[in-house]
Deep mutational scan, measured.
Amino acid sequence: MASDGVVVEIGKVTGSVGTTVEIPVYFRGVPSKGIANCDFVFRYDPNVLEIIGIDPGDIIVDPNPTKSFDTAIYPDRKIIVFLFAEDSGTGAYAITKDGVFAKIRATVKSSAPGYITFDEVGGFADNDLVEQKVSFIDGGVNVGNATPTKGATPTNTATPTK
C-alpha cells in the first residue's frame, strides 16, 4: 500500500443473489490541510450489481451534504461517478479525517463476483488547492465463495486525467 498520499479503498462485503448490500468507500491518509475537492470514477458490471443509491459517509460534515457531495450512476456506461467540492468557501466542510467517504447500496443480481474497480481520477486537492497523490484499492461483493480481489494492489495516480 502507498505510504504517502490519500488511499481510496472500496470495501469488500459478502452478499447473495437478491440481497441488498452496503459497500463502503474509505479514505485513508487524509492530509493535515484536509480535502477540499476530489472527483473520480469507479467501474462495475450492472449485470452483477444493480447500484440503487449512494449515501455520504461520516467524513462528509456539510450539514447539507447534497451541496458538497454528488454522485451519478450510469449503468449503460458501467460507471459510478463521485464528486466532492467543499461548499462553505472557508474550508469548514472539508474532509479532515480518515473514514467512510461514501456507502454504495447495491442489489446482487448474479452469482458472479461483484467487482467495483477504479477507472479514472480527475483530481484530489487540499484546502490550499494543492494537488494530492492518490491511490485506489478495488473491492466489491463476495457472492458465495467468490472473492472480488482483482486489482487489490493500489493504483498510483500522480496526475489528473480527463
Score class of each variant (00 low, 15 high):
32 S>K: 08
57 G>R: 15
129 L>M: 03
4 D>W: 05
115 Y>K: 06
105 R>K: 12
63 P>G: 15
28 R>E: 03
3 S>T: 03
64 N>L: 07
37 N>R: 01
44 Y>G: 11
55 D>C: 13
22 E>G: 06
160 P>F: 10
11 G>C: 13
47 N>G: 13
23 I>F: 05
14 T>M: 04
29 G>H: 07
47 N>K: 05
126 D>P: 00
12 K>Q: 08
105 R>T: 10
132 Q>K: 08
3 S>W: 09
46 P>H: 09
43 R>V: 10
10 I>W: 01
117 T>M: 13
79 I>N: 01
23 I>N: 03
58 D>Q: 08
69 F>R: 06
101 F>L: 06
111 S>N: 13
107 T>M: 08
78 K>W: 02
45 D>N: 09
135 S>V: 11
112 A>D: 12
98 D>Q: 15
75 P>N: 05
29 G>Y: 08
131 E>A: 03
7 V>F: 08
88 S>H: 07
33 K>A: 11
67 K>C: 06
62 D>E: 11
41 V>M: 01
41 V>K: 00
52 I>K: 04
74 Y>P: 00
10 I>P: 06
79 I>L: 03
116 I>A: 05
149 T>A: 11
44 Y>W: 15
64 N>C: 10
57 G>S: 10
32 S>P: 08
101 F>K: 04
141 V>W: 10
23 I>T: 06
11 G>I: 05
134 V>C: 06
50 E>T: 07
127 N>D: 06
25 V>Y: 14
70 D>G: 15
111 S>I: 06
73 I>M: 02
27 F>M: 13
66 T>M: 05
79 I>V: 05
16 S>D: 04
34 G>H: 04
80 I>E: 15
50 E>S: 10
147 T>L: 13
26 Y>P: 09
139 G>Q: 11
25 V>M: 01
81 V>D: 01
106 A>H: 09
70 D>W: 15
37 N>E: 01
67 K>G: 13
102 A>N: 13
151 G>M: 10
120 E>D: 05
111 S>W: 03
99 G>S: 14
58 D>R: 12
90 T>Y: 15
28 R>Q: 03
146 A>S: 09
61 V>S: 12
16 S>F: 11
107 T>W: 06
80 I>A: 05
153 T>A: 10
108 V>R: 11
30 V>I: 13
147 T>F: 09
